[in-house]
Measured scan of single mutants.
Amino acid sequence: RDLEAFAERFKQRRIKLGVTQADVGSALANLKIPGVGSLSQSTICRFESLTLSHNNMIALKPILQAWLEEAE
């Protein structure tokens, strides 16, 4: 599925960039996405391991996609 593929790709890119889950969570606040502050390390972990609810995964995907584009 698309979400699973993105979560795996996100994790691989994050590791390759040398960024921790906690770093991603705090960096999201710097993107200044309306309504989005920082996220906890555990939320990033649960996204990568696909243990969040489907609706949460869908909500987080564009936010994490934006971070990934900014980081690369």
Rank of each mutant, 00 (worst) to 15 (best):
D2W: 09
D2R: 05
D2M: 06
L3I: 15
L3V: 09
L3E: 03
L3M: 14
E4F: 07
E4M: 13
A5F: 14
A5C: 06
E8C: 06
E8Q: 11
R9Q: 15
R9V: 10
F10L: 00
F10S: 00
K11A: 06
Q12S: 09
Q12Y: 04
R13D: 04
R13A: 14
R13V: 14
R13F: 05
R14P: 00
R14G: 00
I15H: 04
I15E: 08
K16E: 14
K16N: 03
K16V: 10
K16R: 13
K16L: 12
K16W: 05
L17I: 13
L17E: 03
L17W: 03
L17R: 02
L17K: 07
G18C: 02
T20H: 02
T20N: 03
Q21V: 13
Q21F: 05
Q21M: 05
Q21K: 06
Q21I: 15
A22G: 12
A22K: 11
A22H: 12
A22F: 12
A22W: 07
V24I: 10
G25I: 10
G25E: 15
G25T: 15
G25W: 10
A27W: 09
A27R: 09
L28C: 11
L28Q: 00
A29L: 09
A29D: 14
A29F: 03
A29V: 08
A29K: 14
A29Q: 15
N30P: 10
N30C: 11
N30W: 06
N30Q: 12
L31A: 05
L31V: 11
L31C: 11
K32Y: 14
K32D: 14
I33Q: 05
I33F: 08
P34H: 11
P34L: 07
G35L: 06
G35Y: 02
V36H: 07
V36Q: 10
V36F: 09
V36W: 09
V36R: 03
G37A: 11
G37L: 08
G37M: 09
L39P: 07
L39C: 09
S40E: 09
S40A: 08
Q41Y: 06
S42F: 04
S42I: 07
S42C: 06
S42P: 05
S42A: 12
S42E: 15
T43G: 01
T43Y: 00
T43W: 07
T43R: 03
T43Q: 04
I44F: 00
I44E: 03
I44Y: 13
I44P: 00
C45V: 13
C45N: 15
R46K: 14
R46T: 04
R46P: 00
R46A: 13
F47H: 01
F47P: 01
F47C: 08
F47Q: 03
F47G: 01
E48F: 00
E48Q: 01
E48P: 01
S49G: 14
S49L: 07
L50T: 10
L50M: 13
L50H: 12
L50A: 13
L50F: 11
T51A: 12
T51D: 07
T51E: 12
L52V: 02
L52T: 02
S53E: 12
H54P: 11
N55K: 13
N55Y: 02
N56H: 15
N56W: 12
M57H: 03
M57A: 06
M57S: 03
I58F: 07
I58K: 14
A59C: 05
A59Q: 14
A59G: 09
L60N: 02
L60R: 03
K61M: 14
K61R: 14
K61E: 06
K61Y: 08
K61F: 05
P62Q: 03
I63M: 05
I63G: 05
L64N: 01
L64V: 07
L64R: 00
Q65G: 11
Q65F: 06
A66D: 15
A66T: 11
A66V: 09
A66F: 08
L68F: 08
L68R: 01
L68Y: 05
E69A: 10
E69H: 04
E70T: 08
E70W: 04
E70Y: 13
A71R: 14
A71Q: 09
E72H: 05
E72L: 01
